[in-house]
Design a protein around this nucleic acid. Sequence first.
DNA 1: AAGACACCTGCCATTACCTCA
DNA 2: AGTGAGGTAATGGCAGGTGTC
Length: 302
Amino acid sequence: MAVSRSSSSSLELTMSMPGFVSSPSFPSSGKPQPPPPPPPRSASFPVFLYDILSHSFVLVAWQVKDLDINQVPSGAAEEEWISAGMEDEEESTDGAPPRKKLRLSKEQSRLLEESFRQHHSLNPRQKEALALQLKLRPRQVEVWFQNRRARYCTLHLYYFMLGLGLVHLLYSESSKEHPANRGKQAMALMQALKSKLKQTEMECEYLKRWFGSLTEQNRRLQREVEELRALKVGPPTVISPHSCEPLPASTLTMCPRCERVTTTGVDKGSTKTTRTAVANPTIAAALSSENGAPALQSRQSC
DNA sequence: AAGACACCTGCCATTACCTCA
DNA sequence: AGTGAGGTAATGGCAGGTGTC
């Protein structure tokens, strides 16, 4: 992001942000383009902030509608949503098929939002399962998450701009001239920021609980592994490739994500990784479920 | 060990469809 | 009924990571 003074009373702001969807889009030709339109007026958008942004900042793009970051479409239109999914795939016979616009049902949206709250990206297994549950194609679920991530980033940019607006408000010349207005406007901005803070706190609380349950599960699985080692019931004996001796069980560690057993510290610190089958169904199930870990991608390696 | 290749996935910019005022 | 704006599902291209040969 770059902020530069273009005149004595205005700032020019350019900003690039991952996932930020520019709309309307500008042609990439070299010709100078007219300035982009100011942010839209909406019920949830403070008018004074609109004025601040309109007059003081030139935004690269703006596409924000509501403060609620996990907003589900509501109102009369919601009732009219039609369900369309895998059964809505007929193609016209003449040339290219007409591009049909899927409208997700209320229930589909709800489940997708719920899933998004748990994790912002899906591994292939989760995607398949969700698609099956929603009667959609996996690709549609994938696209929904991509678009949702973009909206999520856009909304966070909005909150960032709110904060920026507050700073500008407090230090701008015009607000110094009208301190009474400044107070009111600052209160409204603070209200919006407090609402965001509250939501962030709730998200934090949720993540804490999730982390706690994962820690507990990890502890339980480690206990189980220890018990299995103690019992020595048909453990897969790992032979050292160098000494041809069985490796002691205590030198084995298993990565819960990639299901690899790593042996360490035996052959003068060498490390060898072996993919193994998981015999214990409980452990196998626990490992395979991955517990919906957010932002962990299946192609990541350890 | 290094490089070429295929495959998968996410991101981005954009398009196209749909709804609503 | 026509129209423009806004929302969003969908598309296509690109880049990066990974596995295989």
